[in-house]
Structure formats: structure tokens, C-alpha cells
Amino acid sequence: MSPFELREFLAELKSETNGINKTISAVNDSVLAKKVGSISPEQNMILVGVLPSYGSNGQNVDNVRTVPITQLMVLEKCDYSGMTEDQEWEMFQRTFLAITEIKETIVQKVSEDCPNYLINIDVNSLNIDPVWGKAECCGWSMDIEFE
């Protein structure tokens, strides 16, 4: 998955996922913080695509291939000081529903006639973890590894 393919994939997922209002890409936490700094509450929920890292896989030089690893996050910008426990649970529920919808979409695309950049996704790598306090946002992240 190239950076342009990630951008295309984010746009596609935004259009197919309930509640996603904005997509951004990030390289690291400081870039993420800069990009979400200007986001208003009306633009919550945010789909973040982390630019891939690229490893290598192969037994020798004749069969070496590039293996991308990336991460998607569904986040909401949070005001921790004014958030009640019920609001926190509701935010985690909303973002969880979105990230699981994205996971289901990815699995469906891999099982059907999918774009070339999704062909080698390792569906066993689609792990979802909670996110708290990342660039003043909360939600869920999902790792994506390719075989």
C-alpha cells in the first residue's frame, strides 16, 4: 500500500462508514496533534490513516518483497475536563461501532474482488485497541499488516 493508495482507501472508508466526518493522515503523534488541533466538535468522528512502514519478507534475494504495516484510528476530539463517565462510555461506543464497521468492510473487500493494494492483507492482524489521550483524542486503533 503506497501513500496514495492509503489516501484513496481512507476516502473510500469514509464514504462507506457511518459517522466518519473527516479523514487525515499522520506520520507520528506530533503530526496528528497538529492536524487535529483545528478540528471542531462538529467534525468528530475522525478517521486517521498512519502512513505505512515498509519491511521486507523473503528467504533470499530472489523472493524478497516489501511488506507494508499501517494503522487506522477512529477518534473523537475530547474535552477530558468536561466529560462525564457516561459521555466517555458513549464516545467509546460510537467510535467502536465505526472501527468494527471498518474492519468488516476490509474483511469483505479482501474476500471479494478487491483493489490490488488490499490483496495481501493479513486478516488475522486486524487487532483493535482502545486509544485514550492521543493528541487530545479518544477512540480505537486497528493495526493492519500485509502478508
Score class of each variant (00 low, 15 high):
35 K>Q: 04
36 V>I: 05
37 G>M: 00
37 G>Q: 03
37 G>C: 01
38 S>C: 03
38 S>K: 11
38 S>G: 11
38 S>P: 00
41 P>L: 02
41 P>S: 08
41 P>R: 07
41 P>V: 05
42 E>K: 12
42 E>Y: 10
42 E>D: 15
44 N>F: 04
44 N>K: 04
45 M>G: 12
47 L>Y: 01
48 V>G: 05
48 V>K: 01
49 G>Y: 01
49 G>Q: 05
51 L>R: 15
51 L>Q: 13
52 P>Y: 02
53 S>V: 07
53 S>E: 10
54 Y>H: 06
54 Y>D: 04
54 Y>K: 06
54 Y>W: 06
55 G>L: 09
55 G>K: 11
58 G>F: 08
58 G>M: 06
60 N>L: 08
61 V>H: 13
61 V>L: 14
63 N>L: 07
63 N>Y: 02
63 N>D: 14
64 V>P: 03
65 R>S: 13
65 R>M: 09
66 T>D: 09
66 T>G: 07
67 V>R: 09
68 P>T: 06
69 I>T: 14
69 I>H: 12
70 T>E: 00
70 T>C: 02
70 T>W: 00
71 Q>C: 08
72 L>G: 02
74 V>N: 05
75 L>Q: 00
76 E>G: 04
76 E>R: 02
77 K>T: 04
77 K>Y: 06
77 K>S: 07
77 K>Q: 04
78 C>T: 15
78 C>R: 14
79 D>F: 09
80 Y>A: 15
80 Y>F: 15
81 S>C: 10
82 G>D: 13
82 G>E: 14
83 M>A: 12
83 M>L: 13
86 D>E: 15
86 D>V: 08
86 D>R: 11
86 D>P: 02
86 D>N: 10
87 Q>E: 15
88 E>C: 12
89 W>I: 13
89 W>E: 14
90 E>C: 08
92 F>R: 13
93 Q>S: 11
93 Q>C: 08
95 T>F: 05
95 T>N: 01
95 T>M: 06
96 F>V: 00
96 F>T: 03
96 F>P: 00
96 F>R: 10
97 L>V: 04
97 L>E: 10
97 L>H: 11
98 A>F: 01
98 A>V: 00
99 I>P: 01
100 T>V: 04
100 T>H: 03
100 T>G: 03
100 T>E: 09
101 E>L: 00
101 E>T: 09
102 I>Y: 01
103 K>I: 02
103 K>A: 06
104 E>I: 05
104 E>N: 15
104 E>Q: 11
105 T>H: 13
105 T>D: 10
106 I>L: 05
106 I>W: 05
106 I>P: 00
107 V>D: 07
107 V>A: 08
108 Q>V: 07
108 Q>H: 12
108 Q>R: 13
108 Q>L: 08
109 K>I: 00
111 S>P: 01
111 S>E: 07
111 S>H: 07
